[in-house]
Nucleic acid binder design. Structure first.
Length: 487
RNA sequence: GGCCCUAUCGUCUAACGGUUAGGACAUAGCCUUCUCAAGGCUGAAAUCAGGGUUCGAUUCCCUGUAGGGCUACCA
């Protein structure tokens, strides 16, 4: 049997970094073993599932290059589950719990929870402050998500109440006593199976050999093993990878500000950076190399090298990776990525844009910054429009003398004026005045020139700036500076 | 509360009984420099606590502590 893994998201929210990392590890493992990778949309919760989210998951996986070999949607498979439910009932592994029985059960639960709450809420002073804190977290935990029991008939699993153990590929042996689980619900009706049941049936039917999922599923595993046994299926291998955490160390989730992967895309992150960064969150190669291609990751991956503890997602480091990959981009690729962020006054295929590519590549960490660079106060805004600046700004800080600035600018203007307009590049302008610059001091000559051309304290070097605005505009801006200096 | 998982610099991590506890991001300083970056160099920064086991524990065991997960007719 070929190694088969699956990614089984529920379409109840946008696809975020946590989901992506889980999918990535499963995908890597399948690819590494020349096996199969399955995408399965778990949409049995009709109230919360939305088509929009399903599309977002599929688009994101596609963008990130995690191609899958098979695709399933649980809402298309009701008939399959129905057969299993009937079979489980027939074999005595499951039973129909009547509405009356459910009411009794609900009452018992209410008593139990009520008692728990009472035990927890001691006097809120001194020594008990810790238990009070516990109560707080218990009470505030995602209450809105709690489903309200319908008090109607449901189908429950006939729990054999025994100890269940499994060998986790990352954590080793984990043992549970399933008695405390009780007879859990596996379906609301024959047509409405619930998570634990469908997961098991599908993993069995689809021939999944390795279940690689988040560690939040560790506690779900014993229930699922019980069901595997009840349907007489082989129990797959489990690998529970650590969770991705928000900055407060709680599980990264939709409500805790997890950013959709599609959002990173529109912020101008490169897929290679995201893949590389996320692969390193929880996994580490055997050497210290951090910039890795997908091929290198697939080749070097191993479940033994997966971390056991959760990791905080750090956008700063993602940015660093993004920058590393931006630097490597060819001009053509860079242009392609930058296009959506260009202001309308730049024509994508123009000479100006071609000259801008190296300048931009040198400065940005995400493509969204392309827009910032050209925006108000941006470093490259001068290309379109010279911003206002004061006369004093033209003076070099180490030698603030207007007469000197005036003299150098006048000389430089003469040199530049000798160049042909169509041959006005960073190289030619540099050649034209470099000798003069060297004999008269770089700061003394170049600083006033920079200010004259850009009107900004931060900008590319004056030669690049000159070539970006062209000969005519360069001379015009120098003239403006000269008149400022002599006023 | 019960059950389960986890614990190395601020963050991601290396070390699988013997290292001056290594690397990366972030951070501080210096160098380079016409500005801002980039780049180069240097620095600060960690084994949760207490007990064992051992000649020797970051590493193995126990207890505590802390964090997280599950405890649904969500997945």
């Amino acid at each position: 049997m070929p190694i088969t893994t699956r990614f089984a998201p529920s379409p109840t929210g946008y696809f975020h970094a946590g989901s992506y990392r889980t999918a990535l590890f499963s995908w890597i493992f399948a690819r590494q073993n020349k096996g199969k990778f399955i995408l399965r949309i778990e949409d049995t919760d009709k109230e919360r599932s939305r088509k929009e989210y399903e599309e977002n998951i599929i688009d994101s996986l596609k963008w990130l290059g995690l191609e899958y070999d098979e695709f399933y949607r649980q809402s298309d498979r009701t008939e399959i589950y129905k057969k299993y439910i009937q079979q489980l009932i027939a074999s005595g592994h499951a039973y129909v719990s009547t509405a009356e029985q459910e009411v009794v059960r609900a009452r018992e639960m209410a008593v139990k929870f009520g008692k728990m709450a009472k035990e927890n809420s001691g006097p809120s002073s001194g020594a008990n402050s810790q238990s009070v804190k516990k109560v707080d977290t218990l009470n505030t935990s995602d209450k809105e998500d709690r489903a309200v029991p319908s008090h109607a008939e449901v189908i429950r699993f006939n729990n054999p109440n025994k100890k269940v153990a499994f060998e986790d590929l990352i954590r080793g042996r984990i043992e549970f006593d399933t008695t405390e689980l009780g007879d859990f619900v596996i379906a609301k009706s024959e047509d409405e199976p619930v998570f634990h049941l469908v997961v098991v049936i599908d993993d069995h039917e689809m021939g999944v050999t390795h279940i690689i999922r988040g560690e939040d599923h560790i506690s779900n595993t014993p229930r699922q093993i019980l069901i595997f046994e009840a349907i007489g299926a082989k129990i797959p291998q489990y690998a529970h990878i650590p969770l991705l955490l928000s900055s407060d160390r709680s599980k990264l989730s939709k409500r805790k500000g997890a950013v959709p992967v599609s959002e990173y895309r529109s912020r101008g992150y490169l897929r290679e950076a995201i893949i590389n960064y996320l692969a390193l969150l929880g996994w580490h190669p055997s050497d210290d190399k951090e910039i890795l291609t997908v091929e290198e990751i697939v080749a070097g991956f191993s479940l033994d090298r997966v971390q056991k503890s959760g990791a905080i997602f750090d956008e700063e480091k993602l940015k660093w990776f993004n920058r590393q990959y931006i630097i490597k981009l060819s001009d053509t690729d860079f242009a392609e990525h930058a296009k959506p962020f260009l202001p309308e006054w730049i024509v994508p295929k123009s000479d100006t844009f071609k000259k801008l590519i190296p300048v931009l590549r040198d400065k940005i960490t995400t493509f969204a910054e392309v827009a910032t660079m050209f925006g108000v106060g941006g470093e490259l805004a001068f290309v379109h429009k010279l911003s206002e600046y004061k006369k004093e700004s033209l003076l070099w800080k180490k030698n603030p003398d207007a007469q000197i600035a005036l003299k150098h600018l006048t000389e430089v203007r003469e040199f530049l004026n000798l160049l042909a307009g169509e041959n006005f590049t960073a190289d030619t302008t540099k050649q034209a005045i470099w000798a003069y610059v060297e004999t008269n001091g770089k700061g003394d000559v170049l600083w006033p020139l920079r200010m004259a051309l850009t009107g900004q304290e931060r900008s590319p070097d004056p030669f690049v700036s000159a070539s970006l605005i062209g000969k005519e505009e360069t001379l015009k801006r120098i003239d403006m500076a000269l008149s400022k200096l002599s006023s």
